[in-house]
Design a protein around this nucleic acid. Structure first.
Lengths: 253, 253
DNA sequence: TAACTGGGTTTCATATAGTGAAACTATTTG
DNA sequence: CAAATAGTTTCACTATATGAAACCCAGTTA
């Protein structure tokens, strides 16, 4: 037995690079930014930011808008995006299955994976009605609200789960108890539901997609307006959704 | 008057960052790479690459495949991709127009922009027949072959054009003369054609898209197999394509 | 079971290379 | 025309990134 205390600054990492990447991340909020805006966001000197931007620009990761002269993301990201989803990626392989499920249930189907302390939406097919504006593919959400969060944590490998729950910036306070409770329920039932947890007026059911090696790959989620997707309806549909998720899992790896 | 000799090493740039970005660019060729593979590609020591990868991984730009444990692009790129094409980007705005043109001509329509010494394909709608495998959106091609290259250089702002032509790694040799010749033709005619320049068996016509400020924004291209898209046919269709490009230009900025 | 390979990770001494302050342009605004 | 704002360059300092070498695993092979 070995107890490990993960202390704070395990830094075997390159500061300049991290700073440059932080700069790129500024562009998840705004499309166009001026140097000084960036400098204040990442809290660095103009000159430092300028140098980092020059490096990013030189490699095409950042470019300057021809008209406004502001900085924006560069075309290199298009190039990388193109190679992101290769054949073999769940998001591609499962798309047809997801469409089939959408046609069956008539609601929006999404695929979520866990990344750090967040979950991100890697694939989606829109409901036919498509009433509400939904988060785009690529969007990040916290890992402690929503049906698919529960699934991702509940079915994570024990080691990973420990790490997630022990993590520092996990939300403290009352709801943590409730969340742990729900994790148990989720594991037992094989699926999770959420009603207006993340977004008011929205509800979702989610089930784990587990590959042939027994690894949790993603959470499949059916979501829609809470008045259509009532708790009863979701529980009624759960077996169907779990079965779909199981079938999807067999298609992987 | 001021003559500027741009000498070689104008480096006001951060080496570590450039190296990290080079590492990311390795993943345009392969989806999965091992540390040592990367190290040899970018010609750096294992330990250096390891540290850079740690930084990239920490920020989510690189991740390790759960199964193979190899390195691959991280989910942060999904996130950035989602914010790449905002409302207001030519690739989005012009899409419906491009589809209309595709339906009219029945061939693949693409949008290219110039980036450094390359041109990149930022948007495309496939021909209905879709016989041949075409480069994906995001693909980069040299700036000295193909119809849209001629358009992008010919209609570039004079200063930019000078820079491009004077640039060091521009291909030397015979074709340079021919290319300059063709630039003149292109500017005069208002469009360019190419037959089997870049890819054997492929042909294309291209016209400039110029925004209301008079700025060259992109090159619109119609491409298809050379036996269907003969030189005569392309010249016949040129006015139509130029008109479409002009209309698209008026929709911008 | 020992020696060997091929991945990844960590340590460490060294000087290179990144840093922020400040000076300097260029462009806008009052 | 002064004042302000945004971007760029220079420079001295030492913090920080670097590569060599050592180390740690799993698998293979002998």
């Amino acid at each position: 037995m070995k107890v490990v205390f993960v202390m704070e600054d395990n830094k075997l990492t390159v500061r300049a690079v991290e700073r440059a990447l932080d700069i790129m991340l500024c562009f998840t909020e705004s499309t166009e930014l001026t140097l000084t805006e960036i400098a204040s966001r990442v809290d660095l000197h103009k000159s430092t930011v300028h140098r980092l931007l020059a490096s990013l620009e030189g490699k095409g990761f950042i470019m300057r808008d021809a008209a406004t002269d502001k900085y924006r993301l560069g075309y290199r990201l298009w190039e990388l995006s193109a190679n992101l989803s290769q054949e073999g990626d769940p998001g591609i392989i499962l798309l047809p299955e997801m469409e089939r499920l959408r046609d069956l249930l008539g609601e929006t189907i999404s695929l979520y994976v866990q990344d750090g302390l967040e979950r991100i939406r890697i694939q989606a097919v829109q409901s036919n009605h498509a009433i509400r504006r939904v988060a785009p593919v690529g969007a990040r959400m916290p890992l402690y609200v929503g049906a698919s969060s529960k699934v991702l944590v509940a079915f994570a490998e024990p080691a990973v789960q420990q790490q997630l729950l022990a993590s520092a910036d996990w939300p403290t306070g009352l709801d943590q108890q409730a969340f742990l409770q729900q994790l148990g329920d989720t594991k037992r039932a094989g699926f999770a539901t959420s009603v207006e947890e993340r977004e008011p007026g929205a509800a979702a059911v989610s089930a784990p997609i587990i590959d042939r090696g027994g690894r949790l790959v993603a959470a499949l989620a059916v979501s829609g307006p809470a008045n259509r997707l009532t708790l009863e309806l979701m529980q009624e549909q759960a077996p169907l959704i779990m079965e779909a998720a199981r079938r999807m899992g067999t298609m992987l790896r």
